[in-house]
Design a protein around this nucleic acid. Structure first.
Lengths: 221, 221
DNA sequence: TTATTTAGGATTGTCGACAATCTATGTCTG
DNA sequence: CAGACATAGATTGTCGACAATCCTAAATAA
């Protein structure tokens, strides 16, 4: 991913991927001593790594009590999706205004690749998972708003990916998703910000709706 | 503000307010040694405080080169305002859906106080400054979205307040602002999310527009 | 038995020193 | 004179140990 210039960054990177992949369960405690024996080094860089994880909302630290992998309630997860929905819709609107023609044609080529990929493995399409992310990532970049990029890619996506196993959304309907992606690109190409935003909002809304029904279901227990 | 359970938190708190107040200029370097001699303690808690500042985007740290107070370009500042505009508009829409009746009547009382305050000191209204913040803060709380609250109050507002001296917006037109606030509350009271969002968007948009004209002006040099 | 208290152990916060890296000054060479 | 290079100083990253705090569990009392 990114080359670590310091031990703390290296440990941070490894821990972050471990958390996102679920190798460290939500709520699990991160003992500094244990991390020292596992990753080597001393406690100083480990503490720094933990604090970096806290900065990205991947762990929660309470003074004199240590750090634990973040464990989100369904309500907090709903909150995150809600914000993501808004910010990505915004990004799509801005992308329709600010993407260069070269960016747009590159985006079209990406979708053509996705189409071929889906056709090849008959909708099984494991590639679509990262492909989906790639598409959304390019839209966010296309907004030309660095802070927006930072918020979506730096903070929210890690957590969303971390809880992906619960909400089985996009990877189930690759063809439908592709069509929606194509519609979005079409709107961007015709420089229609309002339409682009609307289509992206609908595209993401299904995830939020799925989550909320699940939330309502679990609330019944 | 908040009681510090540890030395690192205390130093962080003091440094944060110092940065927001402009006592530490943007781009100024934060030498660990200098901070040790100033705030006492050893380098460990100072480093932790600096890292916490980095987490809130108040300083920028580069490995082996130290930390500096964040110095935003006008483009980055525009990006931040753009995101804030979107998120606060969203918060206002959600507030219209989710605020309790008690919350709303409390909000009305707040505006009545503001009205009296403005009448008292004839639009000079130094109180309006914090009052303005207070109003926006309550709307954000009214969204009942913890993550949204965290993003707006935790991250964006510190930076916006830090650069407030440049953009002289709201404190100049307290009466106009109050009327806009009243319109927003009216929309919330009548449970009209779309209207509430629209009014809040317009209310904040003037800040963004001011900033962008200034940006265009400075770009000419 | 249950609730409270009180050591004991373990964990986190802090400290001072050492190692690795960067920056600035001055020198040398073309 | 300009620019590359090397050395010296300062700054940051890392280490191991100590102090402060919390969590656990045994012991005591109601």
């Amino acid at each position: 991913m990114s080359e670590a210039q310091t031990l703390a960054e290296k440990v941070f990177s490894e821990l972050a991927t471990a958390i996102v992949r679920g190798e460290l369960a939500p709520g699990e405690k991160l003992s500094e001593q244990a991390l020292v024996t596992r990753y080597g080094g001393s406690r100083a860089p480990i503490r720094e790594a933990i604090q970096k994880l806290e900065a990205r909302n991947l762990v929660v630290r309470v003074p004199h009590a240590g750090a634990r992998v973040v464990s989100l309630s369904l309500e907090e997860l709903r909150d995150i999706y809600e914000v993501r929905l808004e910010l990505e819709s915004m990004a799509c609107r801005l992308a329709a205004e600010r993407m260069s023609d070269a960016d747009i044609s590159a985006l079209e080529k990406l979708l053509e690749e996705h189409a071929r990929s889906i056709e090849a493995d008959q909708g099984l399409s494991y590639y679509q998972k990262s492909g989906n992310l790639d598409f959304h990532y390019r839209i966010i970049e296309g907004s030309k708003n660095s802070r927006l990029h930072q918020m979506l890619c730096g903070d929210l996506y890690h957590i969303i990916r971390m809880y992906r196993y619960r909400t089985s959304t996009s990877s189930e309907r690759p063809l439908q998703a592709l069509k929606e992606h194509q519609g979005i690109v079409e709107a961007i190409k015709s420089r229609d910000p309002q339409l682009a935003e609307l289509l992206m909002r609908r595209h993401i809304q299904v995830s939020l709706t799925n989550l909320e029904t699940r939330l309502a279901h679990e609330a019944r227990h």
